[in-house]
Design a protein around this nucleic acid. Structure first.
Length: 453
RNA sequence: GCCGCGGUAGUAUAGCCUGGCCUAGUAUGCGGGCCUGUCGAGCCCGUGACCCGGGUUCAAAUCCCGGCCGCGGCGCCA
């Protein structure tokens, strides 16, 4: 069966008189006497289909249309239908154009009532929405977030390809934790204990010794006890790693990624932004950099009780971003915190200079976080490319270099200096699509309490 | 894991503080009716709910206790 020969958005008043087939979902039905309007929706939009009895029809035709009108007015919302109709220019119709219905085929009748309202008259809690995600995603505002994320992904890919990066896919089933710390997801693997990758970190580093400029957009798993609007047990990580580069080089790549994504969303994503009523960000380059030391001092001034070299929590970052915003030291809400204390960064982070913070000498590192307001969007660093230094860092963190031998041994055979970053894609959509919860930037989010749907 | 708030038809809400007038209101949906230009159509009739267990009381949606579930904040989180 031929279901459609045009998409709904392609129907224009200029097609007056043309017969077309469209397929989609029954978005609304309005019956006015012997006249019935059906609003049909596909992924491109909606169109009004009018069913009426032709005035000059013979009795047989009249009876046929009566049957159709009866059928249409009893259709349940969200039923799937194919409609054959004639395009009619009409100022009374919503887009100045409608279809005069000739035939309707019900492809799948929907049960009612629906678990949530698709037409947008009654809103639903996030829990209801996620529990009924396949139907929730029929709402344009729900779909808009995923469409904007797709646009962001395309933009990132295109830009990195332009910079001679190669897209890679590293293993997602791994033998042991890459860095310790985060809670791993265990899996069985041919009778052995294995885990789902929490990051492509170590593999992407190894690839800099061959492919040099690599990136990956893929899933990562963390079983943290983190039950917040900004954590997922399964999230999409955008990772790059660059040979012969340091953290300043990769920060430049990162800020260009942010700039290009926000520009693309503002321009190409306008239709979806309008649907969710979100104002696009204005990101200007460079994105301001503030050192950890400066941030620490600001927070100390604001009355936070912080040890020198201590990591920042959410309340700290909320305050810090508020201060920076006030001083105009953010760009569309984004800012870098650079030169973190080495001790609060992972073992593969290259050490930098020393500095005195709060009267105490602290070993810094060539590292950065990119934040948007209080939210950590990305973090990265120059990496250590000397085996000996890696071994020392592992030991300092109580990790056993032997269990990292599969990774360390390749540093003996020509590992170049390199740097990179990782970015949470769903977190990036918080500023880009104005969502309050990263779950909304996930098709079927996995979190501490959701495994279905 | 800790703290706070919440749980009323399919969905979203009012009622709870100050127990009785709740036979639990409204919107949307659903069933039926009227209407040939609606566009969140309108109007009329109907349908459907107090998370679970215990307690207080003459009387509990309402107050108390426990549980379960949800949301937010924090913690945890290269």
């Amino acid at each position: 069966m031929k279901y459609r020969d045009v998409l709904i958005a392609e129907i224009t008043p200029e097609m007056e008189g043309k017969e077309v087939r469209v397929a989609g979902w029954v978005h609304a039905v309005r019956r006015i006497g012997k006249l019935v309007f059906l609003i049909l929706r596909d992924f491109t939009g909606t169109i009004q289909v009018t069913f009426r009895i032709p005035k000059d029809a013979d009795d047989e035709t009249k009876e046929k249309y009566k049957q159709i009108i009866k059928l249409v007015s009893s259709l349940s919302l969200e039923s799937v239908v194919m409609i054959r109709g004639v395009v009619k220019r009409d100022p009374r119709a919503p887009r100045g154009v409608e279809l005069l219905g000739k035939e309707i085929v019900v492809l799948n009748e929907a049960k009612s009532p629906l678990p949530l309202d698709v037409s947008g008259k009654v809103d639903a809690h996030i829990d209801t929405r996620l529990a009924n995600r396949p139907i929730d995603l029929r709402r344009p505002e729900s779909q808009a977030v995923l469409r904007l994320m797709s646009l962001a992904t395309k933009t990132i890919r295109n830009y990195l390809y332009d910079l001679n990066f190669v897209e890679v896919f590293t293993p997602k089933i791994i033998a042991s934790g890459t860095e310790g710390g985060a809670q791993l997801v265990p899996v069985f693997y041919f009778g052995k204990q294995a885990f789902l990758a929490q990051s492509p970190q170590l593999y992407k580093e190894l690839l800099t010794s061959s492919l040099e400029y690599v990136f990956e957009i893929g899933p990562a798993w963390r079983h943290e006890e983190s039950d917040t609007p900004f954590h997922l047990a399964e999230f999409i990580s955008v990772d790059i790693e660059m040979a012969f580069a340091d953290y300043n080089d990769v920060m430049k790549v990162l800020e260009n990624v942010i700039k290009r994504v926000s520009d693309a969303i503002r321009d190409e994503g306008k239709r979806w932004l309008d649907i969710i009523k979100h104002e696009p960000l204005e990101v200007k380059l460079p994105i301001p950099r503030i050192t950890y030391k400066e941030a620490w001092e600001i927070l100390k001034n604001e009355g936070f009780d912080l040890e020198p070299g201590e990591d920042f929590g959410t309340p700290e970052l909320r305050k810090l971003s508020e201060v920076l915003e006030k001083e105009g030291k953010t760009s569309g809400g984004f800012y870098f915190i650079v030169d973190w204390p080495a001790d609060v960064r992972p073992f593969y982070t290259k050490r930098g200079k020393k500095d005195v913070i709060g009267g105490k000498e602290i070993d810094l590192s060539e590292s950065f976080d990119l934040n948007w307001k209080h939210l950590e969007i990305s973090s990265g660093s120059t990496r250590i490319h000397k085996r000996k230094e890696l071994e020392e860092e592992l030991k300092k963190r109580g990790l056993n270099p032997e269990s990292f031998e599969w990774y360390l041994r390749w540093f003996d055979y020509g590992m170049p200096p390199h740097a990179g970053w990782g970015m949470g894609l769903q977190r990036l959509m918080v500023p880009m699509a104005g969502i309050q919860n990263v779950r909304l930037a996930s098709t079927f989010p996995r979190d501490m309490k959701r495994l279905i749907p």
